[in-house]
Design a protein around this nucleic acid. Structure first.
Length: 430
DNA sequence: TCTGGGGTCCTAGGACCC
DNA sequence: TCTGGGGTCCTAGGACCC
């Protein structure tokens, strides 16, 4: 088996870059994209980083700074970002099918089967092509392991002299070690805020220190991940390319409400809507759930924070929106307290099985006819929505109330996925 | 007043069994 | 009834990622 050669293609400030694609007037200005309810900063342009807006900053703490520097704000427009992400994936898979879509803005490619003389030049060409065909700038790191490719892409992003590409694969061990030496541990993929102080207490400060740890020692401090981390930083690959993605284990859907509520009908409406989305994901991927959890909570930043949670399991695995909603609403009702101000609802579907392979319960045969008719009904339901637009038909419970819906006051048009919101070009005669 | 959403994997500890 | 070792399964929580 040939050694893999990984390229990590990482979109620069992805959400902000998507917004700028349709607003070229925002080039050079500080821009941020905000999470649901316009609560936190989730993407920042370089100019926004430069004036000191931290990642995940709560917006209300930075209002003054935003005003002072004329920071342009957008509510997250995931439909737009998802569509542009797919366009990038299409280009990358045309380069090689050995592509793993790691997240909405990152993909790993295995280059070991391609004939490439000069990896840096290859990276530059891919970068140019994505800029030309999709319009999104990327950074590219190339290395013998995913962890090193990730590290390389960070330098490709921040050191302009590299032209957006860092090839650590073709470098000598000495050059590679120099990069490891100047990388603080918290920048390493897999070391977060809990492990970093623990390692520092042990005298480990740089990626090179980690690479030189005894594997046993690393395992003691960080569990099995530690051992893998030492190997990966040393150039020995532990995380193979997963071109077909990982099999999904759960479907989660949760929202903070636009405003807090003590009305059960509002909560019922939220659960119905969250379930509709989650169950659709199941059907879309040909999956059924055997179990679910639903939880309600009050605002965790207010005194008296409460969280209640109920688990249910289904007699027969299901992706039926109506059935799941009914059971979740019933479960939540038992603990509902009319004197609480609820702030958030979450649902989690798990114990997933493929719809082909699921085993019926003891009474499966008796239910078969019923379950087939439910299946046909949902198929028609999804077909209508796919043809005429999302939520063209929906369950009545979803519309009991809109009070829970998050606010997206600053959302840009869905330029590429909604006919009503296409950009309009005007040609001026002169 | 205002603090995101959606995931994965590992581990420690309890319950239960022989 | 108590004692001890060792195995399995389940669950809650921790840690990480984007």
């Amino acid at each position: 088996m040939q050694q893999p050669i990984f390229a990590l293609i990482d979109c620069n400030n992805f959400f902000v870059s998507c917004e700028r694609l349709f607003r070229p007037d925002l080039e050079g200005r500080p821009v941020v994209v905000l999470s649901s309810n316009d609560g936190c900063v989730v993407s920042r342009s370089n100019e926004a980083k430069a004036i000191g807006v931290p990642m995940a900053a709560p917006v209300f703490k930075h209002r003054d700074r935003f005003r002072q520097h004329g920071v342009v704000q957008f509510s997250a427009n995931f439909e737009l970002y998802g569509d542009l992400s797919e366009r990038i994936t299409r280009v990358l898979t045309s380069i090689t099918p050995r592509t793993e879509v790691y997240s909405v803005d990152e993909s790993f490619l295995d280059l070991s089967q391609l004939e490439i003389d000069d990896y840096h030049a290859w990276g530059r060409a891919v970068r140019e092509r994505l800029l030309r065909e999709v319009g999104i700038p990327v950074s590219i790191g190339i290395a013998p392991t995913k962890t090193l490719a990730k590290l390389a892409s960070e330098y490709a992003k921040t050191e302009p002299a590299l032209g957006g590409v860092l090839d650590l694969f073709s470098q000598t061990a000495e050059v590679r070690n120099n990069y490891l030496l100047k990388t603080p541990i918290k920048e390493i993929w897999g070391i977060g805020w809990r492990l970093a102080p623990k390692l520092k207490a042990d005298g480990i400060f740089t990626a090179l220190d980690v690479a030189q740890m005894r594997p046993r020692h690393a395992a003691q401090l960080m569990g099995v991940h530690g051992r893998q981390l030492v190997a990966e930083l040393g150039g020995q690959s532990c995380h193979p390319l997963q071109p077909f993605g990982k099999v999904r284990q759960t479907v989660m859907n949760g929202r903070m409400f636009g405003e807090d509520t003590d009305e059960f009908s509002v909560i019922e409406s939220a659960i119905a809507s969250l379930t509709a989305r989650a169950a659709y994901s199941l059907r879309h991927e040909g999956l059924l759930a055997r179990s679910a959890v639903v939880s309600l909570s009050t605002n965790r930043f207010k005194p008296g924070y409460q969280r209640q949670q109920q688990a249910i399991s289904f007699v027969t695995p299901t992706a039926d929106t109506g059935q799941i909603t009914a059971q979740l609403v019933q479960a939540v009702q038992s603990d509902f307290n009319q004197y609480e101000q609820y702030h958030r609802a979450n649902i989690l579907l798990f114990d997933l099985v493929g719809e082909q392979s699921f085993q019926t319960d003891l009474f499966g045969d008796a239910n078969l006819e019923q379950s087939n008719s439910a299946h046909d009904r949902l198929e028609a339901f999804d077909a209508i929505n796919s043809r005429y637009g999302k939520r063209t038909i929906r369950f009545a419970a979803e519309d009991l109330s809109k009070a829970w819906q998050p606010k997206y006051q600053l959302r840009s048009p869905r330029y590429t996925t909604n006919w009503q919101e296409l950009p309009i070009a005007r040609i001026l005669k002169r």
